[in-house]
Design a protein around this nucleic acid. Structure first.
Lengths: 187, 187
DNA sequence: GGCTGACCATACCTTAGGGTATGGAGTTAT
DNA sequence: ATAACTCCATACCCTAAGGTATGGTCAGCC
């Protein structure tokens, strides 16, 4: 999986390596020469597979978008679970370590790439609507569900971007958070 | 205020212009040549005032840090207000339009500059502790205050980074949010 | 065996942007 | 007024990084 069996490279070999780089060091680390070095190849290879840097970045975006959309559709099966479980799944997902670097790198990238921005929005919307629906199912008012779902999603985004400046939530905190978010509204 | 009266430039003229650029287009837009053009000057001037780019960025960071620290200490006088008002002030600050671009640009910059990162953390902590203290004053448990204050601050950070993907909170939403955050804990 | 096309190496060009050396104009001190 | 200092213009250099042109190598096919 780390490298294809063939000595020749495929488009996926390039985009895969670039995505790894993107996660680790941000979009600024994607340099043609560097990728060539890491893949044991020269620019001749790169420009055979891709017209230019923009085309390459577009290919990377495309690959990531596809992967993300697939991951999201995988989450759709959560509809079978009870509402609270769905919210818990989303909350845990927002806390997941692996998401951090992806989040930060991609949102930074989305600033320059409309296509990436669209998928970011899609992902946010997906989580938001899922939580909102769960809260509605629990009997909350429309306004209440909207507010609380928005709060959770925004907090998740913020958590990904905070530089560990604030106390990291524990598993207990998550439980309390869910309890709080699903608590009855007071008049 | 837009330009100093003298035809000669001061260090503040440079850092001020750079900060404006930083807010508008991010740290990547800070180029020496461009700043020279916008200030109607050449690189000879720049390198008289600053040793190199790093020194310049350090000066910018220093200026922004000073300004931010001052703004934070200005907020300290909120201690006189009742708890709910303090929370409202913080919530409104997190929503403030002007904060967005600053937030995003600076957090991106903080990734590379430890000094900037420190002040970002300070600012986050400041708001967090203020909200937490207000909640404690309102009779919430330590755990509860920590959870809710963290939720608000993280949501604020997330709001600054979200690409307007989710519904923008209205003034009403803020009021409901404060009511929710300060609502009694349920057993 | 030789041909063809996929895949890559080598060498080079070009631009952007940081950095330097030097001189000149304006100001201030003596 | 002239020496000295401040502030800036001009003209360079250097490097990184995207991009191109061209030739070479290996696989598979006839």
């Amino acid at each position: 999986m780390t490298a294809s069996a063939s000595s020749r490279l495929s488009i996926d070999d390039w985009t895969e390596r670039a995505l790894a780089l993107l996660m680790d060091e941000g979009v600024g680390a994607i340099k043609i020469n560097r990728l060539c070095r890491e893949l044991g190849v020269t620019k001749g290879s790169f420009y055979w597979h891709f017209a230019d840097l923009d085309a390459f970045l577009a290919a990377i975006a495309e690959k990531w978008c596809a992967e993300t959309r697939e991951a999201l559709s995988g989450l759709s099966e959560l509809h079978a679970l009870p509402p609270l479980e769905r919210i818990r799944a989303m909350a845990l997902r927002l806390i997941d370590d692996r998401s951090w670097s992806v989040e930060r790198a991609l949102r930074e990238w989305a600033k320059d790439d409309a296509k990436v921005a669209v998928v970011i929005v899609e992902a946010d919307q997906f989580v938001f609507e899922l939580v909102q629906a769960a809260l509605l199912e629990l009997g909350h008012s429309a306004q209440d569900a909207r507010l609380r779902a928005g709060l959770l999603v925004y907090a998740g985004i913020g958590f990904a971007h905070g530089q560990a400046s604030l106390p990291q939530p524990t598993a207990d905190d998550i439980e309390n958070l869910i309890t709080f978010l699903s608590s009855e509204a007071q008049p």
